[in-house]
Design a protein around this nucleic acid. Structure first.
Lengths: 189, 189
DNA sequence: ATCAACTGATTCATACGTTTACTATTTTCG
DNA sequence: CGAAAATAGTAAACGTATGAATCAGTTGAT
């Protein structure tokens, strides 16, 4: 296992014991204390979820910082434009469902993106309550351009795994999610 | 593969084509269009990262909504108290590194938690600039109690996988992260 | 011993997302 | 047909995270 430091025994109680803990040695320490001192039983579950969240945060933060912020866009703006690009035109309701944002977030974000000339919001003829979101020409051009860079950097991350490993990872995550299914994008039933 | 709907061919361009897309069929649709219409090459990487983020968001949202919000605590507050509990006492700097938050976030959050009587912030004798975070008695009691519920619900998620599968998942995520190593908790070098 | 450079924590202004409440439209069904 | 319920989108209030600036203490060179 790559970066697991070994120094997580001894020196509990030393003044700055936490100073040289890294993520992996913290997980090991947490596992040990939760089991030995408190008797919790599902340490592997804790380790799975800690690692899952850690990986997701790290990758997201990197993509946002390296690709999107320099162009003046937020991670959420990219996500919204991504689904409008590939699944659009669509209603805010469906955009929210597919991105996992709230409807209000789509509404707010959409307002900015319309102001920036990247998104069009046209009234729905069928349903007077609703609206259709679509990319403008400029929005489409920006997505094609930004996704080129985004996709290369995604590959930089996923490329640490072989293709077979990547497929297994998707399968396992799929099983994790759908084993708990019946939720929509934001955990609502 | 469990919930992959098959209706992601045909009917592009139908007025509400997105209405019955779910997450998996959206991923399939995105893969197809990115490859066929735009010629992007790393679709598997896109699928891996979309699924990773999705899984992480879903699990986090569920734990926060089911376990922590009902007790009036945020997800971030739990994360901070978790590391202080198991790796503490520690300095805000190290708490930020282990949780992946910014130092400012730790400072803000810490203020609330101290006000609520869950956290102690005592000056460091060695270094007058610094401070040591530790749990109060009430904070410790709350963590033991809340983690019992948290851990059961974690198990509810991870339990969708066999133990062997869980170990493989951790290994793969580990490899994904450390294959890109040299980052600290928030992607800083 | 002193000053400059560094490091740690905090505060401030800002941005973003969520929840709740509201308005408008559509649907349902008595 | 018409009133009640449901649904879509938006606005307001709130909480929380972030980066920049600030304050304070430490370190090291001279």
């Amino acid at each position: 296992m790559a970066a697991k430091s070994t120094r997580d025994e001894q020196d509990r109680g030393r003044p700055d014991a936490a100073a040289d803990l890294d993520f992996w040695s913290f997980v090991a320490l947490a596992n040990r204390r939760l089991a030995e001192e408190y008797g919790f039983r599902h340490q592997l579950a804790t380790e799975v979820l800690l690692t899952l969240n850690r990986a997701s945060d790290l990758v997201t933060y990197d993509l946002e910082a390296a690709v999107h912020r320099p162009r003046g866009r937020s991670w959420s703006a990219f996500r919204l434009m991504f689904v409008v690009w590939l699944a659009g035109p669509l209603e805010p309701r469906n955009a929210a469902r597919l991105t996992g944002m709230s409807r209000a977030a789509v509404s707010n974000l959409g307002k900015s993106l319309v102001a920036d000339g990247l998104l069009d919001r046209t009234p729905d003829e069928r349903d007077g309550r609703s609206v259709q979101l679509s990319l403008t020409g400029a929005g489409h051009a920006e997505m094609v351009s930004v996704f080129r860079e985004h996709n290369e950097r995604e590959f930089g991350w996923a490329g640490a795994l072989t293709e077979a490993e990547q497929r297994i990872l998707v399968l396992l995550l799929d099983k994790l999610i759908t084993g708990h299914d019946g939720f929509d994008a934001r955990g609502r039933r």
